[in-house]
C-alpha cells in the first residue's frame, strides 16, 4: 500500500513536469505575444516600441532559460507577475479559487443528489415507461451544451421573474452564496448528474441480477429493503468513478458557465489570460488545474480501495 502510494506520487511528479513543458511550449507556438495584444488594444503597430516591452518582460531570452526561470520560481513558491495587471500572479489567482471551488462543489452535490436516486429508480423500474423517460432525460443531459442550458435558464428567469441571478458582488453569507450559485451550478451539474444516473442504473442492474440479491429476496426480505441495503451500497462506486472522470470535464463546463453567468472564477479567467497571452497567468493556472485533476484521480483510486477491498494494486 505504502509503496503503491509512493509510486503514484512519483508518477504524479513526472506527469506534472510533462504538463509544465507542454503548456510552456504550446503557449510559445500561439501567434502574438503580450506586446502585440497591448499595442493592438491601443491601435499601435511600431515594431521597435513593441520590442522594448518584449525585452522588458524577458520574452526575448532563449526558451530553455525562460522555462528554467519559471520552473525555478515555481519551486520556490514565486509565481511571477501577470503581464496585464502587473500584480503578483498569486494575488490574482488565490481570491478566485474559492469561487470556482464553491461552484464546482455545488454542481457535484447537485449531480449526486439528482443522479443517484434517479438511477436507482430507473434500474428498479427497468423497461417501464418511467425508465425510458428517465433514460431519455439523462441522455439529453449529456447532449445539451451547458452554456445553452444556462442561457435557457436565464431566459426563463427573465420571462417569469423579470430579472436574473448575476454575480455583481461577493455574497457575504452562506445562503447568499447558495442563492447566487444555485442556478449556475445546476446548469453545469446537469451533465454530471446524467452521467451518474446512467452509471448508477447499469451497476444497479448488474447487482440486482446477482445471486445474493435473489437469495435475499427469496428469503422473504421486502423488495425495498433488498434494493437499498444491498444494491445501493454498490452504487457508491459509480459515483466515485464519475467524480474522477468528471473533474476534468467539469472544468470545461465551468469555463462556459462562468462566462454566461459572469462569475469571476478561475475558469473564465483562464480564457481571458489566454486571449491576452498572459504567459505567467496561463502557465500557473494550467499547472494549478493539473494538480487538482491529478490529485482527484489519486484520491478516487484510493477511495476505490477503501470501498471495495477486492481491488488490489499490485501493479
Amino acid at each position: 500500500m505504502l509503496s503503491y502510494l509512493i509510486r503514484r506520487l512519483l508518477l504524479m511528479v513526472v506527469t506534472l513536469f510533462g504538463v509544465s513543458v507542454a503548456i510552456f511550449l504550446l503557449l510559445r507556438i500561439v501567434p502574438g505575444n503580450i506586446a502585440d495584444i497591448l499595442f493592438d488594444s491601443a491601435g499601435l503597430i511600431d515594431p521597435a516600441e513593441k520590442q522594448k516591452i518584449v525585452a522588458d518582460l524577458g520574452l526575448d531570452l532563449p526558451l530553455p532559460l525562460q522555462y528554467w526561470q519559471w520552473l525555478n520560481g515555481l519551486l520556490h513558491g514565486d509565481l511571477g507577475f501577470s503581464y496585464v495587471s502587473e500584480k503578483p500572479v498569486i494575488d490574482e489567482i488565490l481570491p478566485r479559487i474559492p469561487i470556482t471551488a464553491r461552484l464546482a462543489a455545488l454542481a457535484m452535490i447537485f449531480a449526486v443528489c439528482a443522479g443517484v436516486p434517479l438511477g436507482v429508480i430507473s434500474a428498479v423500474r427497468q423497461n417501464t415507461k418511467l425508465d425510458y423517460a428517465l433514460r431519455v432525460l439523462s441522455l439529453s443531459g449529456l447532449s445539451m451544451p451547458s452554456f445553452w442550458l444556462g442561457l435557457l435558464i436565464l431566459m426563463a428567469c427573465v420571462r417569469w421573474f423579470g430579472t436574473i441571478p448575476i454575480y455583481d458582488r461577493a455574497p457575504e453569507t452562506f445562503w447568499a452564496w447558495l442563492a447566487m450559485l444555485a442556478i449556475p451550478a445546476a446548469s453545469v451539474g446537469f451533465r454530471s448528474s446524467a452521467l451518474i444516473m446512467r452509471l448508477t442504473r447499469s451497476s444497479m442492474l448488474e447487482v440486482l441480477r446477482q445471486d445474493f440479491v435473489r437469495t435475499a429476496k427469496s428469503k422473504g426480505l421486502s423488495d425495498t429493503a433488498v434494493t437499498y441495503d444491498h444494491a445501493l451500497r454498490n452504487a457508491v462506486l459509480p459515483v466515485i468513478t464519475t467524480i474522477g472522470v468528471e473533474t476534468a470535464f467539469l472544468f470545461g463546463g465551468l469555463i462556459v458557465t462562468e462566462t454566461v453567468f459572469n462569475i469571476p472564477g478561475v475558469a473564465r479567467f483562464l480564457v481571458e489570460a489566454i486571449r491576452w497571452r498572459d504567459y505567467p497567468m496561463v502557465q500557473n493556472l494550467v499547472m494549478f488545474i493539473a494538480v487538482v485533476v491529478v490529485s482527484v484521480n489519486l484520491i478516487v483510486d484510493l477511495l476505490y480501495m477503501l470501498v471495495d477491498p477486492r481491488i488490489r494494486y499490485s501493479e
Binding site: 427573465v158 423579470g162 430579472t163 436574473i164 448575476i166 455583481d168 462566462t259 459572469n262
Partner: peptide, 16 residues
Amino acid sequence: IANRSTAVLALESGKF
C-alpha cells in the same frame, strides 16, 4: 459584465 444582455438585465433589475 462582458455579455451585453446580462449587463442590460442587471441594469434593469436596479442593481446598477
